[in-house]
Every structure is written in structure tokens, then in C-alpha cells.
């Protein structure tokens, strides 16, 4: 059996993905259909992100992979190993050193810079999928810029709960045109979507790629009387004391005692080291 190609995918597949990425960058927030391939990891486990990363990686890159903000969760480890093996790229856990970061469900706390690429794994790219299951219908809504359904849903939340009850995968409007699902990041991360790095979103099973070029406007949907609010647990990190980072809640004893710690493990480690 022959060895696998650089970054696993064959050249024709990479060209197809690369063309989709370019159209995605040219039409920010629009979901470009692409002929997603079967990958050697299951659909739903980051195949879209992996295909996008494989298409953008060069031998000179340094890659970081996070899942839930952490470098050492098992699926992040597994994907990092995949690229070490198939692309031979250098890897890192340090956000600032990485040129390509593949992520599931978080944006790193440290602001990303020009020259960095953030690749998101996306389970359901269509922000209106749970309101309208039919692809033919949602495609029409995007074409006509008809987003009433989305606003109705959010407003129903407000009338029932007093708040918009979407805590993650909170939809944004991109450059005043397309409504986009930022993947299931907590809404705490939404304001960070406007950044200096290139953001690419890959949904393998659903066969869609979309993108945000640097400095693209991505406005979280809201209402004048209920403005968007990025929320997090009202605690400092129990390990590094950070007040500004997104926190995970960890149960530490049988009595349900809780500890709040940074979800971004790299951010937390660096703060702890600096304090020492």
C-alpha cells in the first residue's frame, strides 16, 4: 500500500477544498457547498475542520489543536497526532506560536494576530436548521435575506424567559448580509469573532465551508431593548485568578463542591507560570 499524500488528502481533493475556501473568503458568511470526503475519523468529530486544515497547511506551519479550549482533551490529541503523522508539521500548545489553530467550541483567550488561521469544526453550519429542517427552504431564506424566522425565535425566548435563551452557537450577521452560525462556541466568545486572523469554518458531514476574512464585521443578533451580552460564570479562575476568561465548572468532591477554572488551558498555564 502506498504512503498517504502530504496532509493526507489527495491533490485533487485539496484543490476542490481550496477553491471553496477562496469563494468562502470572497463571500463572508455564505456557506459554500463542497464535496466533503470520508476521513479516517468519524463524521461529527471534526472532519470538516480536518479537511480545511489539510488544505491550508504548509510544511512551514506550526499547528495547535484545541477542543473545549484545551490542548490535552482526547479528540484534540488525536487530531494533532493525525497532522503530525500525515503532514509532518510542528505542533505547539502555545497560542502565540501557532500559525494554524484548529478548534472545537472555543476561541482562544489571547487575541489572535495577523498571519494566524483559526479553523473551526462545525457540526451544523446552518443557523436556521433547527427552525427549518429543509435545506431547500433555508437556502431560499439566505438568498432572499429573509431572516424573520430567526428574529421571531429569539424574540419568543425573550417573551418567555426575559432573555434570549441561546447560550452557545449564537448567530451573527456578517457584514450586514448573511446570518452565520459561529459553531458552538459560547456566546462569551462572539465579540472575538472580529479579529486580525483568518477564520475558516468546516462542516464535513454537512458539506459546507465558510469563512471570515480578518476584520470582518460579525454582529451578534439582538434587539434594541435586549442588547447582546457576552456572559460567563461570575468567578475568577481557581487556578490562575483570571477575571476575564471563560470558565469551566469542575465538581471536586462528593458534596458537589465546585471549582471554576479557565477553559483555555494554554492561557491558564501561562498566567500560573507568570505568577510564580
Amino acid at each position: 500500500m502506498q504512503e498517504y499524500n502530504f496532509a493526507y488528502l489527495d491533490e485533487q481533493t485539496k484543490r476542490m477544498i481550496r477553491r471553496a475556501i477562496l469563494k468562502g473568503l470572497a463571500i463572508p458568511g455564505y456557506q459554500v457547498p463542497f464535496a466533503s470526503r470520508e476521513m479516517p475519523m468519524p463524521y461529527g468529530w471534526g472532519t470538516g475542520g480536518v479537511q480545511v486544515s489539510a488544505a491550508v497547511l504548509t510544511p512551514d506551519d506550526t499547528m495547535k489543536v484545541i477542543d473545549q479550549g484545551a490542548d490535552d482533551t482526547t479528540n484534540a490529541v488525536s487530531i494533532r497526532k493525525f497532522f503530525e503523522r500525515t503532514a509532518g508539521v510542528a505542533t505547539t500548545t502555545v497560542t502565540g506560536e501557532a500559525t494554524v489553530i484548529q478548534t472545537r467550541h472555543r476561541i482562544p483567550e489571547e487575541p489572535l494576530k495577523e498571519g494566524q488561521i483559526l479553523v473551526y469544526q462545525v457540526p451544523i453550519p446552518e443557523p436556521m436548521r433547527f427552525l427549518e429542517p429543509r435545506e431547500t427552504e433555508t437556502r431560499k431564506m439566505h438568498a432572499l435575506e429573509e431572516y424573520g424566522l430567526m428574529h421571531v425565535k429569539l424574540y419568543e425566548d425573550i417573551s418567555r424567559h426575559g432573555h434570549i435563551a441561546t447560550a452557545y452557537a449564537y448567530p451573527v450577521k456578517v457584514e450586514g448580509r448573511y446570518v452565520m452560525d459561529p459553531s458552538p462556541i459560547p456566546k462569551f466568545d462572539n465579540p472575538k469573532l472580529e479579529m486580525a486572523a483568518i477564520q475558516l469554518f468546516g462542516a464535513g458531514r454537512e458539506q459546507r465551508i465558510y469563512a471570515l476574512p480578518p476584520h470582518t464585521k460579525a454582529v451578534s443578533l439582538d434587539f434594541e431593548d435586549h442588547p447582546f451580552e457576552a456572559s460567563k460564570a461570575d468567578h475568577p479562575c481557581g487556578l490562575c485568578g483570571a477575571q476575564d476568561s471563560y470558565l469551566d465548572e469542575v465538581i471536586v468532591d462528593d458534596e458537589g463542591g465546585r471549582l471554576f477554572v479557565c477553559s483555555d488551558t494554554d492561557y491558564c498555564t501561562h498566567r500560573q507560570e507568570a505568577a510564580r
Binding site: 477542543d67 473545549q68 447560550a167 471563560y246 470558565l247
Partner: peptide, 10 residues
């Protein structure tokens, strides 16, 4: 797979 970030926000 872990979903604790989403779960935390909920």
C-alpha cells in the same frame, strides 16, 4: 465528545 463548554454556558 466533551461538550462542557456549551454545557457551562447553558
Amino acid at each position: 465528545l466533551p461538550h462542557y463548554v456549551d454545557f457551562q454556558s447553558e
